[in-house]
């Protein structure tokens, strides 16, 4: 244990603590809390019952008031620890509450009603994970549909992105033709035209194509990413042209050269683009919000934002759905974080 501490607090030169070391560790520990804390808090909250969510101050772990079924009452009753008039305490079940007075019964002897001031009773609580928060949206809401829409958009858009962009990158890296530089510049120039600038006319075009309220209207405008063409082309430039010549001598058609020689050799760059594309498309919000106005077409992001903007927010469901929405991205983070961070540091793209 002390070894771990020593390892973690290892400092340059092994000299004493310098003020910069204190700042460093304060910053790192603070960062750890600020970066992960909110997400962890959200996950923890997502297991709380609606009643627990409405409490202030909140508890760290999910607690619910214990309930008992008492003879003579249809519904289970909440259990409280009440301080009686004689000063003794007893565990009683609340039948009803009138003003500041709570009418309670002893669960073992339900005949007699005891009146207790509500200030003199505290709920008997137990830890309980409200898994209903997760299971109910799956059965009662359109949540499954949103999930499916998001998965469909993400997978389809990523596949098309990979095919369309790798074809363009192939043309731009392995063929000599007039206008090649022009085409490349055109593609890179589109980096300067973000969605927020062209959303009005783009909306009209998508509508004119009959893609309004259609998942393809979400997918198609996103699949030709300049960054995708760019990273794939850079990678393909490192594949020797002699391989293409050799394949031509081997009677391969240009299409075969593309998918049997170039594509397999571009696999590492394709993997990077695939990961980015999945994260991008999964997280897309503004454009789906514009294109999709029918509930059954919402993606997760749109569905979540619409539900959370409602007057009477059902936080217990929203929180659970948010957690589910986070899962794929968190998985990507856990397994591919190193891959992505080196990719970004290398290319400066996101």
């Amino acid at each position: 244990m002390s070894g771990i501490v020593r390892f973690l607090t290892r400092r340059r030169g092994g000299k004493g603590w310098h003020w910069t070391d204190i700042v460093t560790w304060a910053w790192l520990i603070g960062g750890l809390l600020v970066m992960f804390g909110p997400a962890v808090w959200l996950v923890g909250s997502s297991f709380k019952s609606p009643a627990a969510l409405a409490e202030f101050p909140p508890t760290i772990l999910p607690y619910v008031t214990q309930k008992v079924t008492v003879e003579g009452y249809d519904k289970p009753l909440d259990l409280y620890e009440a301080t009686l008039e004689d000063g003794s305490t007893a565990v009683l079940a609340e039948v009803r509450r009138i003003g500041v007075v709570s009418q309670m019964v002893d669960p073992k002897d339900p005949g007699e009603i005891v009146k207790v001031n509500i200030a003199k009773r505290t709920p008997v609580r137990e830890m309980s994970f409200a898994t209903d928060n997760y299971t109910e949206p799956f059965t009662h809401f359109d949540f499954v549909r949103y999930l499916w829409n998001s998965v469909f958009v993400t997978v389809t858009a990523t596949l098309i992105t990979l095919v369309v962009n790798s074809m363009a990158a192939f043309a731009l890296s392995k063929y000599e033709f007039r206008g090649r530089t022009m085409a490349m510049l055109l593609i890179l120039a589109t980096l300067m035209v973000p969605l927020s600038v062209i959303m009005v006319p783009l909306y009209s075009i998508v509508s004119a194509l009959g893609l309004f309220n259609n998942l393809w209207g979400v997918i198609l405008p996103t699949v030709a990413t300049p960054t995708g063409v760019f990273i794939l082309r850079q990678y393909m430039l490192t594949i020797p042209d002699e391989l293409v010549d050799a394949a031509r001598m081997d009677k391969a058609s240009e299409w075969q050269i593309y998918w049997r020689i170039i594509l397999p050799l571009t696999a590492p760059a394709l993997a990077v683009l695939a990961i980015f594309s999945v994260v991008w498309r999964w997280n897309d919000f503004l454009w789906p919000l514009i294109v999709l106005s029918r509930k059954e077409l919402y993606t997760l992001q749109v569905g979540l934002s619409i539900y959370s903007g409602e007057l009477n927010v059902q936080w217990h469901f929203i929180l659970a759905m948010t957690v589910v929405t986070m899962i794929p991205v968190v998985l990507v983070f856990i397994f591919l974080q190193r891959f992505i961070t080196t990719g970004i540091a290398g290319t400066g793209l996101k």
Binding site: G31, L32, M35, A39, P58, F285
Partner: peptide, 27 residues
Amino acid sequence: AVFFFPVLLSPVVVGLIWKWILQRQGL
């Protein structure tokens, strides 16, 4: 990785996480 974590989260999730934290019964 600690500082990079939120980068991958969707803006909607980010918004909801903080909306939840900044609300009246929040963290």
